[in-house]
Amino acid sequence: MKTTILIINHNGRALLEKSVPAAEAAARAVEDCQVAVVDDGSADDSVSYLIHHHPEVKVLTYRHRGFGPACNEAVASMVTEAVVLLNSDVVVSEDFLPPLLEDLSRDEVFAVGCKFLNPDGSLTDALGNRTSGEWRRGLLHLHHETDPVKLAETCPQLYANGGAMAFRRERWNALGGFDDLYHPFYWEDVDLGYRAWARGWQVWYEPASVVYHDQGGTIGRLFRNREIETISARNAVLFTWKNLLEPRLFGRMLAAQARWTADDVLISDQPPRARALWAALARVHAAARRRAEEQRERVVPDSTILSRARGKPW
């Protein structure tokens, strides 16, 4: 399977020094695999570093538009069957690629996610492993497995963390890639995985494909914590508005979202959910358009998606 490892970079020169050599070593372990870096309008010397130190790496330079649009444009321009998407703050293990591509070769699979470890090899608070979800209190609440025993199984999951995932390019194009409704970051990978399940495809977790993730390495440098919380909460609302099509469940979630606005008085110092609701309202038109598109393509109902994504291990 012709494969491209695609690293997305924005002002991450220091991160590239670790991630690119690791990706090159991993690419050499399989046939017909190249490494490409998308530079999303960096102001630092990322591009010149790549040209001088990694001449074999294909470099695509775009003006800065954010993670999702950069991925979409890069994937659309490539001639490859499989893409392995990596954040610039992710360092892969040398043998991470073969198990990932083996899982991806199964007919029903759209994407496969890696096993994320902290840079020191620990699992504490590591996000993106064997993901699942539950509709509760107005939102899809995401769960990231941390039990080492459960994390040893190859199994379905709700979505593959966009920090390190492999997918089939053809199906990515059919899904339209990452949705810029969630610009600038967060929830685009959850959305992609959910929509893949909704079309009858599958997303898997592969524990043999180990990557090391310095969480917050990119976004944490560029945004304040409160800003990150608000954008994440807004996108969680937009995800519900776009994807939850079952009328009764949708009505219940929206009623719960209405109640959030009183939480600052009833409780105190809540996550900025009320602000997130108003921010989401500014994008309601775009969400409605995507909802209509999603409805036309949906073959699996909402109530089935989450249970399928918690399916049995292979």
Partner: peptide, 27 residues
């Protein structure tokens, strides 16, 4: 709560209308 209901109600009407206008749900 009133403001929240207004926001969520607006979103609900907007989204459900768009859904209804777009036709059938394959699922």
């Amino acid at each position: 709560l009133g403001a929240g209901a207004l926001a969520a109600g607006t979103a609900f009407c907007w989204l459900r209308t768009a859904q209804a206008l777009s036709g059938g749900n394959r699922a």
